[in-house]
Design a protein around this nucleic acid. Structure first.
Length: 844
RNA sequence: GGGGCGAUGGUGGAAUUGGUAGACACGCCAGUCUUAGGAACUGGUCGAGCAAUCGGUGAAGGUUCGAGUCCUUUUCGCCCUACCA
């Protein structure tokens, strides 16, 4: 027997697909389409196992749909703007563009070795001016629609990367990449008005039935809609402040009002600009970090003003006004009305400053003398000590009633509040898409005319300067528009902008007039299946959804509101971790395993301890290089293994034993293939034909169902089962026609998983017309069925009979079964439960 | 603090609507064979027991003829989010 030479065979098929452009597609409304998209990679230089998993999952789906007769759009591109290129360029004195292009070339070669069914003619790269030109046009389009605006605002400033971060890029008060403690800085920034579409983005989630619930919940929480009331508090005191607005979801607890708390950035703070005590307090607030720990324990501190706030429902009551560290400026109005009895933070604050704690809601099971003592009671109940609100049910009844009264008095009004903030898109970075704006000497912003696009990034510039390198490009900055001399914006766009519309570009990748062609997106969009990591659940996916809202806004031609019809989030790839006695991480390549038990460091007999399996990361040195795997075991083995062990949505553990067994399995399939070819030549009688037909049909259904439900790990199990059947049954008498036909079907359903191997075998059999084989429902009926016989719900016997047997007949049969008779032991049968062809339960 | 997901052999995981728990794979054990290979093949592998049997899906209850699956309580783990008024 020949050994299966994966190297030559995989190369042969990859060349074949490339040469024949097997996966090239065109817009063709006469065909049913399927748009299969995986999140495009950042060109870091090398693919990692996460990519292998992501793109294998997508490829299985794309190849399956392709064989099913769909016109499948399965493209690939590069999210190629961003900081790593700029950092690498700075460190090694390189050009970010060249660095990026080299990386793309490397990664493209690697991806091709995986045997993906990609239409490479549609390849795009976001740092290419043919791409970002259209992005700049979109920016101007949004500018015209007033969906983009400029605002002087506090921003998160990363002092190491010297750049502004979005709220989402700040994790525990630190920059998501650099880990530096984030500072606050006031800068003029461009914003996309995403909050305008808060309601639309929330409503849209309802229709996304093929999205994981988890992701929808995360987005819902992020948008953070809350129903409540805006209240105007009259203010008395020694400052020219008459009125302070608050947002609250619990206006019904107003009778428990005991203080008003303001954010340190509230506009009232301007009167304290020169107050040393206030400045000291402000400084202290900034020290109480924003880490998880600090917030959990977080002491509530305040700075008392001489102002008094008047309770709108009880004008006689006047309470102190504080600045407090727990009030956020960017939620509501940066002011909170304090009701200590029914809010834990207010409670903590009141305890500290000895403020009144008045109970106004009692739980349903407590009497009217209920008093809040040790902790706040935020739950539902009945209003007490609250004048006209007494005896109403909280929160529903009481909140509505309070709003009604406040509206009458013109001291408040119903309000819906969203947590979602506008999207700041300015970045003080070189390697990004230039913002197509220029300013006159007064700082007034002018859009660059569309005829002058793209605003190209200058090349070959010195990056080793503090701040944004574009600030130093004086010649580049100067631009004349309508005879006016202006200076260009030097900020570039957040790279999330690039990835917010790339899926549209894949539909018309070479269109020059606009970012896409209407007839192309009308045909291909929305993406039928989007596949990627759950880490993009909020940002990228929400921004992309916003982009569709923005493009369709005031534009009846653009009707796509949701870009991704189906979403699948795959799990991570994990590997065991290893450490030497000095607690240094050891990579799997440095290991030597003796007798499968002893782990030693190669060439040194240092004993290595084995740690838990964790997601692959360079810092823990538990990564496996896909290129080595492909070179050693082949792409098919890698694909087979990465799909085999765990369901695609869960984490998978990479192991040497696992990849080896997949490799061996392909060799076994190859040996089987030679046997099958021999048997086909023999052309036996048809004695076993029905048997193999039934078998094949059963597995066609299983695989079909598993493909449709993303149960790819079960498909691998199905392949093993099919191998097991064939290798045992192959010498039975089949006619040439039946064996060929069935074996061919089995090979075809293997092609999505192990395309090189399966196509090679099909080719040897000279099968050219490859279509997905449908199963035949009528053939799924079994000639014999197993019926479980239970006594009192416990399985006692298994009877094999013809299907459709009725209860009486079955009972007759089992009355001759010694085992059963023994159990019945002359006892009276109280009841019988019969389910046809499945079960008979006898109750005694 | 809020929200979500999960818990099944030594391991990863199967188990369509409640109806044979442990498919398939790894690992392990035993054996066969050889041109000694990254071998291949055959059999076994939830626990206890010689066996008949009995017990068994994190724990405790419940519904049901019957529960891994449904309900209640609880423990643990993971993920997201967070002073959101």
């Amino acid at each position: 027997m020949n050994r299966y030479n994966f190297k030559s065979i995989e190369t042969k098929w990859q060349n074949y697909w490339e040469k024949n452009k097997s996966f090239k597609v065109k817009t063709d409304p006469s065909k049913k389409k399927f748009y299969c998209l995986e999140m495009f990679p950042y060109p870091s230089g090398k693919i990692h196992m996460g990519h292998v998993r992501n793109y294998t999952i997508g490829d299985v789906l794309a190849r399956y749909k392709f064989l099913k007769g769909y016109n499948v759009l399965h493209p690939m591109g590069w999210d190629s703007f961003g900081m790593p290129a700029e950092n690498a360029a700075k460190q090694n004195n390189l050009d970010p563009k060249k660095w990026t292009e080299t990386n793309i070339l490397n990664m493209k070669t690697q991806l091709k070795k995986l045997g993906l069914s990609i239409d490479w003619d549609r390849e795009i790269s976001t740092c290419n001016k043919d791409y970002y030109k259209h992005q700049q046009a979109f920016f101007l389009e949004l500018f015209e629609k007033k969906l983009v605006y400029r605002k002087e605002n506090y921003v998160n400033w990363d002092p190491i990367d010297e750049t502004v971060l979005a709220n989402e890029q700040v994790i525990d008060g630190k920059g998501w990449r650099s880990g530096a403690i984030v500072e606050r800085k006031k800068l003029s920034q461009w914003f996309f008005n995403i909050s305008k579409f808060s309601q639309e983005l929330l409503d849209g989630l309802e229709k996304l039935n093929s999205w994981p619930n988890k992701v929808k919940i995360m987005q819902k929480n992020w948008i953070g809609k809350s129903f409540g009331c805006e209240i105007d508090f009259r203010i008395e005191g020694d400052l020219p402040v008459n009125n302070i607005k608050c947002f609250t979801t619990r206006p019904d607890t107003l009778f428990g009002f005991s203080f008003l708390a303001l954010s340190i950035d509230h506009e009232v703070s301007k009167f304290f600009r020169d107050n040393k005590d206030f400045l000291r307090f402000k400084n202290e607030c900034s020290k109480t970090g924003t880490t998880e720990e600090a917030i959990a324990v977080g002491e509530k501190i305040g700075f008392k003003t001489n102002l008094k706030a008047i309770n709108p429902l009880n004008p006689k009551q006047k309470v102190p006004v504080y600045f407090a560290n727990f009030v956020l400026m960017d939620y509501g109005f940066g002011a909170v009305f304090g009701c200590p009895a029914h809010d834990q933070r207010d409670f903590d604050f009141a305890k500290k400053y000895d403020l009144e704690i008045k109970t106004v809601v009692k739980p349903f099971d407590k009497n009217k003398n209920f008093k809040v003592i040790n902790e706040a009671y935020p739950g539902p109940g009945i209003l007490i000590n609250s004048g006209f609100l007494n005896d109403l049910e909280a929160p529903e009844e009481s909140v509505l009633k309070t709003i009604e009264v406040l509206e009458e008095k013109k001291l408040g009004r119903k309000q819906i509040n969203f947590r979602l903030k506008d999207w700041g898109v300015s970045r003080q970075r070189y390697w990004g898409c230039p913002i197509p704006i220029a300013y006159d000497e007064n700082g007034k912003a002018y859009p660059i005319p569309k005829s002058m696009l793209p605003v190209e990034l200058p090349e070959n510039i010195d990056l080793n300067v503090k701040g944004n390198p574009l600030d130093t490009q004086n010649t580049w900055r100067e631009v004349t528009i309508d005879g006016k001399k202006l200076l260009r914006e030097t900020d570039t766009l957040d790279t999330f902008v690039c990835s917010s519309w790339y899926y549209l570009r894949f539909c018309s990748p070479r269109e020059t007039a606009y970012g896409f062609k209407k007839e192309d997106i009308d045909y291909w969009m929305p993406v039928d299946q989007y596949i990627g990591g759950v880490e993009h659940a909020i940002l990228h996916l929400l921004y992309s959804r916003f982009f569709m809202q923005a493009l369709s806004y005031e534009n009846s031609d653009f009707k796509i509101l949701e870009p991704f019809n189906g979403l699948f989030t795959q799990g991570m790839v994990c590997h065991e971790t290893y450490k030497d006695p000095d607690n240094n991480w050891i990579s799997p390549d440095e290991l030597e395993i003796i007798d499968g038990k002893k782990y030693l460091k190669k060439n040194k007999s240092i004993i290595v301890s084995v740690g838990p399996s964790e997601s692959m990361s360079k810092s823990k040195k538990n990564t496996i290089d896909p290129e080595n795997i492909i070179n050693n075991y082949g792409a098919d083995a890698a694909r087979l293994f990465i799909l085999s062990d765990s369901p695609p949505e869960k984490d998978v553990q990479w192991s040497e034993e696992g990849i080896l067994s997949s490799y061996k399995f392909i060799q076994k399939l190859w040996n089987l293939n030679e046997k099958v070819i021999n048997e086909i030549k023999k052309d036996h009688s048809n004695d076993a034909d029905t048997e193999i037909k039934k078998f094949t049909n059963k597995y066609l259904k299983k695989i079909h169902d598993n493909l449709e439900s993303f149960s790819y790990n079960k498909i691998v199990a199905n392949l093993y089962e099919m191998y097991s059947f064939l290798s045992k049954q192959i010498e039975k008498p089949y006619t040439k026609h039946t064996l060929t036909d069935n074996y061919q079907k089995i090979l075809i359903v293997m092609t999505p998983i192990i395309p090189h191997f399966a196509n090679e075998c099909l080719n040897i059999l000279n099968i050219k017309d490859i279509k997905w084989p449908d199963y035949d429902l009528s053939m799924l009926k079994e000639e014999l069925v197993n019926i479980v016989i239970q006594i009192n719900g416990k399985k006692r016997a298994l009877i094999q009979t013809k299907p459709n047997i009725d209860e009486e007949k079955l009972f007759e049969i089992i009355m001759n079964n010694e085992k059963i008779i023994k159990y019945l032991d002359q006892k009276t049968i109280k009841r019988k439960i019969f389910i046809k062809d499945k079960l008979l339960n006898i109750i005694i």
